[in-house]
Design a protein around this nucleic acid. Sequence first.
DNA 1: CGGCAAGTTGAGCCAGGTCAACTCCGGTGG
DNA 2: CCACCGGAGTTGACCTGGCTCAACTTGCCG
Lengths: 251, 251
Amino acid sequence: MPQRPAKKCLHCSMHRKTGNFCSHLSDAELENLSNKSRTATLKRGEALHSADLLTWPVVAISSGVISMQHLLEDGRKTIAAFFMAGDIIDMRGISSRNRGHLIALNKTDICRLSPTAFEQISETNLDAQRVIWSNLRTQNYRAMDHSADLAKKQALEKLASFIFECRGRQVVDICKNSVIIPVRRIDLAEYLGMQPETVSRCFKDMETRGIIEFKSISHIKILSIPTLRRIANGDKNTQNMRPSCKVLSYG
Amino acid sequence: MPQRPAKKCLHCSMHRKTGNFCSHLSDAELENLSNKSRTATLKRGEALHSADLLTWPVVAISSGVISMQHLLEDGRKTIAAFFMAGDIIDMRGISSRNRGHLIALNKTDICRLSPTAFEQISETNLDAQRVIWSNLRTQNYRAMDHSADLAKKQALEKLASFIFECRGRQVVDICKNSVIIPVRRIDLAEYLGMQPETVSRCFKDMETRGIIEFKSISHIKILSIPTLRRIANGDKNTQNMRPSCKVLSYG
DNA sequence: CGGCAAGTTGAGCCAGGTCAACTCCGGTGG
DNA sequence: CCACCGGAGTTGACCTGGCTCAACTTGCCG
């Protein structure tokens, strides 16, 4: 007698939201996967230990933010990627070589998926397979976009891009102009390859130029999407967009 | 009567080299895929047009280097990723939104795989599925590593990392110390988010410090792998490693 | 209400970007 | 065979965006 859906999945966002892997499983598959998997809640700063990742290399995130962090010899730290609700971290076959540490930036609910059950589902359930695949592809192209941002953009431009990235990723969008920054300034700085001080200055700059408005420290309202877009795209002529006439800066 | 293997695949590195997707196909699968696919050779600078990518979103690379390039408003250009022999570029489901352009950096042999044949194989041939998957995962983690490099490393450190990346990716390694840089300085600079001038200066620095040696403009011999590794890892105390005694730089 | 972490502001400085001149090298044509 | 050409790479001199360090403010939690 299959109780459907598996009890512990009932309130999990991974199962509830279409577009996520778990919502494409049959009752039997979900039951099986659920029984063999382990949920957990991480506090800010807690890590997914590499020892655990060897036995549980596939982790689904149901809420919160997990970062992939790299550490340099002298203490410089970088966040290479954010994983958020719906993402599947798949460390199968990633050699134990220094791949960075997975560290929660928030209170985060995760589900360590049984590798065998996961593999079996991905082999037999084409629907689920496509979702997993698509998630991985998205992660991949997101990482490449991020590389492009880091490589040549200036601080202000990176921050503008980041606001759009957050907007695109947030699960509930209250409104097209409202963006929640789900991480601390420090984490943001490490993700964008800049200093917290610089992040602060850039936000301030956008605010005084009337492009964004802070509802709270982590809640932004975008006042001029076009201007922000142009900044993100590296357009240098956005200084004078406010007073409707565009002053040429040559000469 | 299946002629095995498909004629045009006979000399293709994708089919010949184990570890690549095509080498895991049955004769029938290869025959079918081969018939429905289109090979092509690109010259330096030629692009995979987005129109083509709509109908042929899956491209396998058999030799050469393809870059994913992003362009900013004011002409700044970035290379977000390199794709090399064995890589599969999978643009299925990537919205036509500005995802960057795929441009050859060399004479490059590609094979546009029939999406239907590719999909069918990936659903039925578990062996092949695993290879595709693993390739995508590798691309993903490579992109994240690259992000980490770009975010916080200094020019010299990025270059050192890049040398190791090339070493890790090169197909034929003549010798553990020999590394071929498969792209021009300009492309390298765009990939690492720096200026060609800076690339030049950093190479020079490594050379004068006796860490690497240039056999030709694109052929490096690493003279001290440990030093190069330490630079890549962000260790600041590599200046004085040569004269066997390590001079402390404090005080 | 104190204590601490996070965030902000200000002042000074340097790694690496920018610009311009020069060298190197492979290809082409007389 | 050499002169010429153009793109790639290198070198030097200068300049600036953002890093650094230090002081200060804010906000959260017990």
